[in-house]
Simulated assay, not measured.
Amino acid sequence: MAKYLMLALNGPTSGEGDEERCNRWYEDVHMPDFRKIDAVKSARRYQVVRGNLPGMEAWPYVTAYEIDTDDLVAVSKRLATEVGPAHPTMDRERSAHIWAIQISGDD
């Protein structure tokens, strides 16, 4: 079975209390929605404490999702339909993801 890593790069909007609300939603709703999909083997969120991204500001959070599947298209469709919409405190203008890096050397 192929193994993939999806990295979600994001952070909250800048209003008062937005970071707390966004983090609560991410931990209590968003990541559990991902974990309900059987191909998602793990979901871990990290707070960036230091980074070097020339020409841009680093994202405050990175989430790593490990996915095992031989049908990435089907998993992508499930994620699109079964994972709820982003919380209003998620800064969608600065959100990004790196999707479907096939893991090698782990056989």
Rank of each mutant, 00 (worst) to 15 (best):
D70W: 03
L72W: 08
D106M: 13
P85V: 08
G84D: 05
R21N: 09
L7P: 03
A39G: 10
V75H: 06
A64R: 10
M6H: 10
P54Q: 04
D70R: 10
P88G: 01
W59D: 11
E20Q: 15
G84K: 08
V62A: 06
M1C: 09
V29N: 12
A39Y: 04
D18F: 01
P32R: 10
H30S: 03
E19G: 03
D68Y: 00
E93Y: 11
A39R: 03
M56H: 14
L79N: 07
A43H: 10
G11K: 02
D38Y: 00
H87A: 06
S76T: 15
M6S: 14
A8H: 01
D38A: 15
V62S: 08
G15Y: 00
K36H: 01
Q47T: 12
G17D: 12
W59T: 10
V75C: 05
V83E: 02
I67Y: 03
E27I: 05
V49Q: 07
H87W: 02
A74Q: 11
L79R: 02
R35D: 02
P12M: 06
M56E: 15
P85G: 09
P60E: 11
M1H: 12
K41V: 01
N10M: 12
V83I: 12
E16K: 13
A43T: 07
S104I: 15
E27M: 12
G11N: 01
R35Y: 02
P88E: 07
S104E: 10
D107G: 15
V83Y: 04
V75K: 06
R94I: 01
A96T: 07
P54K: 13
D71C: 10
K3F: 00
F34R: 11
S42E: 03
E66D: 12
L9A: 07
T69A: 11
K36S: 03
R21D: 10
G17W: 02
A2F: 04
S76N: 14
D91M: 06
L9Y: 07
M31A: 06
A58Q: 13
D106W: 14
K3S: 08
P32H: 07
A74I: 02
C22K: 08
Q47W: 05
K36G: 06
S95K: 11
Y65V: 00
V40Y: 00
S14K: 10
S76Q: 14
W59Q: 15
M56W: 07
D33V: 04
A100D: 02
V40W: 01
D68H: 14
P60I: 02
I103A: 15
H30K: 09
A80E: 15
R92D: 07
S14F: 01
R78L: 13
Y61W: 09
G105Y: 06
F34G: 05
A39S: 12
D71H: 08
N10K: 05
W99I: 11
